[in-house]
């Protein structure tokens, strides 16, 4: 059997006195979409930051295709095939949409030190293709700093895809979007992931999105992984329900366990 794309084992990360992650282990296989859920402050973003190299874990290991990448800087991990979108979208605001994608392509081809050619003339076709894949080709010449937030999220996805990643990390990809847009973006992501056999790890607050697209769900609570498994198993896990709904409502809500309404978190 081949090793999973991402394997996280026994990660621990402490900020001052706050334990953000403790003994967190999981794996994501090629082509699989895994949702990482949990209340605010559970440690989801920290988990992403540890995987993509923005933070170094205090303990534990991260492996990509079986190769240890723990503690490597973010830029090296990107080169190994990890694309990422941020909770608070991060793009290059002084560049056009097209240039944002070109920037990633220039980096991939290691052209960052070249002083002569016009950057905007390089890899245009490829950049346009990527924008088409996320349905943003018509935005190509708009300055990224002036886009609507939902569009910025799609541009981030295009940037993340520029390096043909084996693993996509998407931190709250649909936060700040209208419900219709959310479903659209996630359907798009799922299609892209399936097509390219990309492993996707995403966090999401909208449970419709989670249960609609995730092959598996991981639940974090105050730094601990409290449940993991298929969507239905996790949905009915009493500990998960307790975290999301509070113990007192547990009995009352038992009857409507299947109602989609428990997105309110």
């Amino acid at each position: 059997m081949t090793s999973p794309v991402l394997e996280v084992s026994r990660i621990r990360k402490v900020f001052g006195g706050v334990v953000a992650l403790e003994e967190v282990s999981f794996a994501v296989a090629a082509g699989e979409m895994v949702a990482l859920i949990g209340p605010n402050g559970a440690g989801k973003s920290t988990c992403f930051n540890v995987v993509n190299g923005q933070l170094r874990p205090d303990e534990g290991h991260v492996a990509l295709h079986g190769r240890a990448i723990t503690g490597l800087p973010a830029r090296k991990i990107w080169r190994l095939g990890v694309g990422r979108t941020f909770q608070v979208a991060a793009t290059f605001a002084s560049m056009t949409v097209m240039e944002n994608v070109q920037m990633a392509l220039l980096s991939r081809r290691r052209r960052l030190l070249s002083l002569w050619p016009r950057a905007t003339r390089l890899y245009r076709g490829e950049a346009l293709e990527l924008l088409e894949r996320v349905g943003a080709a018509d935005l190509a010449d708009r300055p990224c700093g002036q886009l609507a937030y939902g569009d910025v999220k799609r541009i981030e996805l295009a940037i993340a895809l520029a390096n043909e990643p084996a693993l996509l990390l998407m931190d709250e990809p649909t936060a700040g979007m209208a419900p219709g847009e959310r479903a659209e973006l996630m359907a798009l992501t799922a299609a892209i992931a399936r097509e390219g056999r990309i492993a996707v790890l995403f966090t999401e607050h909208d449970m419709d999105v989670v249960f609609g697209h995730a092959d598996r769900v991981l639940v974090l609570d105050r730094g601990h992984l409290i449940a993991a498994g298929e969507a239905d198993t996790v949905r009915n896990d009493p500990r998960v329900r307790e975290v999301y709904l509070g113990p007192e409502t547990l009995a009352a809500d038992e009857a409507e366990a299947d109602a989609p309404g428990w997105a309110a978190c």
Binding site: F86, M95, S114, I159
Partner: peptide, 20 residues
């Protein structure tokens, strides 16, 4: 040129720049 673009990328968003 790509050099100046990469420099500007680091100014615009160091996080995003590292992540590409």
């Amino acid at each position: 040129a790509p050099f100046g673009y990469a420099l500007r990328a680091g100014r615009d968003s160091p996080r995003r720049a590292q992540a590409v």
